[in-house]
C-alpha cells in the first residue's frame, strides 16, 4: 500500500499531555517536520522551558535538556559554544521567555548567539492555571487580573518581536500564528527559515507563534482559534521583523 502521509520522524511516539485544543501539538509538529526536512534531526539538541512544554523532551526525537525557568537561551548558548556544528533550539513560552528569562533572551540576541528560539505566545500562564503573562492583553481577564488587565496598574504587554527587532544580533525574527491552515503554513515556513538561518551561521533567530490556551481562556478550541484572530493578531501583528546577516564567524570556527 502506498504511504501518503506519515508522522514525522522528528517526534517520538509518546502521547502528549497537552489539553484538548491546545496548539502546542501543532507547533511541536512544525518544528519536528522542519528538522527532519532539513536533514538535521541527528545533530539537533533542544532545550525545554518551564511551562506547559516542560516535558517536550519526551516528544521531540532528538537530544534534549530541561533548563531552569527562563534560562533556556543561556543553556542553549552553553551547548552551542561546545558544539557549534550542531543545531540548537529552545522552545519557550511567554512567561519563560518574556518575564523571568527576559535578560537571557535579550542577551542571547545581542550576542547574535547562533541558536533558534521558538516562542509560544498564548497571552496567559497555562501550566500554573491561568495567571497573567507578560503578554496578557490589556483588559484580558486571568486568575490574577480578575477585573481585566489594567495597564495603568499591571503595565503593558511585552511585544517580543518588536523589542528584538532593534537588537543588532538578531538575524531573523518573525511573528506567526497557528489558528488557521494558512497561518500554520506560514508558521512552518518561518520556522524552517529560522533553522536555515542558524545553519548558515547568520545569528540569533526567533519565531514567535501566537497560540491558544482554551482551558485557561475558558473557551472551546474553536472559540479560542477565533480569539487569536480577533484579539491577539490586532495587538501582535503577524509578519517579519528582521531578516539580515549579523556577520558571525563561519560555523565550526571557535568564537
Amino acid at each position: 500500500m502506498a504511504v501518503i502521509f506519515q508522522k514525522t520522524k522528528g517526534l517520538t511516539d509518546c502521547e502528549t499531555h497537552y489539553c484538548p485544543g491546545c496548539t502546542h501539538g501543532i507547533v511541536h509538529r512544525l518544528v519536528a517536520e522542519c528538522l527532519e526536512e532539513l536533514g538535521v534531526l541527528g545533530k539537533t539538541v533542544g532545550v525545554c522551558p518551564v511551562g506547559c512544554a516542560v516535558m517536550a523532551y519526551d516528544y521531540f526525537n532528538c537530544d534534549m535538556v530541561e533548563a531552569p525557568h527562563g534560562r533556556a537561551p543561556a543553556v542553549a548558548t552553553g551547548i552551542k559554544r561546545v558544539q557549534p556544528g550542531n543545531v540548537v533550539f529552545t522552545y519557550q513560552g511567554d512567561g519563560d521567555l518574556a518575564a523571568i528569562g527576559t535578560a537571557e533572551t535579550i542577551h542571547a540576541a545581542t550576542r547574535g548567539e547562533n541558536i533558534t528560539v521558538i516562542f509560544i505566545n498564548n497571552a496567559i500562564y497555562g501550566m500554573t492555571g491561568g495567571q497573567m503573562a507578560p503578554t496578557t492583553l490589556p483588559g484580558q481577564v486571568t486568575q490574577t487580573t480578575p477585573y481585566g488587565r489594567d495597564t495603568g496598574y499591571s503595565g503593558f504587554p511585552v511585544k517580543v518581536c518588536e523589542l528584538l527587532q532593534n537588537v543588532d544580533g538578531v538575524a531573523f525574527a518573525e511573528r506567526t500564528a497557528v489558528n488557521t491552515v494558512a497561518h500554520i503554513r506560514q508558521a512552518k515556513a518561518a520556522i524552517k527559515k529560522a533553522f536555515t538561518c542558524q545553519l548558515e551561521g547568520r545569528g540569533f533567530s526567533i519565531v514567535e507563534v501566537l497560540s491558544t490556551c482554551p482551558t485557561n481562556w475558558g473557551m472551546t478550541p474553536v472559540e479560542a482559534l477565533g480569539w487569536v484572530e480577533e484579539k491577539m493578531i490586532p495587538y501582535y501583528p503577524l509578519g517579519n521583523f528582521a531578516d539580515r546577516d549579523v556577520h558571525r564567524k563561519p560555523e565550526g570556527e571557535n568564537v
Binding site: 543561556a74 552551542k80 535578560a103
Partner: peptide, 19 residues
C-alpha cells in the same frame, strides 16, 4: 554572561553537551 544566573546556566548547557 549578562549575569551570574546566565553564566551558571551556560555551564549547565556546556556540561550537558559533554564539555
Amino acid at each position: 554572561a549578562e549575569s551570574e544566573v546566565a553564566a551558571i546556566n551556560m555551564v549547565l548547557g556546556a556540561a550537558s553537551a559533554g564539555a
